[in-house]
Write a protein that binds this DNA or RNA. Sequence first.
DNA 1: GCCAACGTTGGC
DNA 2: GCCAACGTTGGC
Length: 157
Amino acid sequence: MPNYWLMKSEPDEASIDDLAAAPHQTLPWTGVRNYQARNFMRDEMRPGDGVLFYHSSCAQPGVAGLAHIAGRVTADETQFDAASPYHDAKSTRAAPRWLQIDVQLVRKTRLLSLAEMREAPELADMRVLQRGNRLSITPVTPQQWAAVLRRLDGEAA
DNA sequence: GCCAACGTTGGC
DNA sequence: GCCAACGTTGGC
């Protein structure tokens, strides 16, 4: 059984349309600089896992599309790039500190806004909605995943 | 721009 | 190991 995730991206950096326009509609998920989020990638993500692609730090935060994990974790290349804002001088190729993983678009959806997510009783326990949450990658339960799909496809669509 | 909440850093 | 200071996240 696949796992499910919610992955935050700032649309200024990588939006759902950027993902749709990418070769094979796939982008490497780089720039994760939080150990909890990294460990999710390292220990729990598998190819085929479902992803809610979430727009954060923008005018209309919310789930903007569905994606899936399309490969296995590798070293995040941006950590070795001195010109990148994600550069990490303490990381080495022999022992990379940060990881990336390929994410492939499944389909763009209507925007399921953060406000609507907060109003949905069946989503009340979603990790991303908990007070003070700042993780860019959070787990989603199968029940929450199904509830999001119902809202995207059902009468509220 | 504000600010609450959190993670990281670094002195001790 | 403690914890204050600092930087970042991210909604509003």
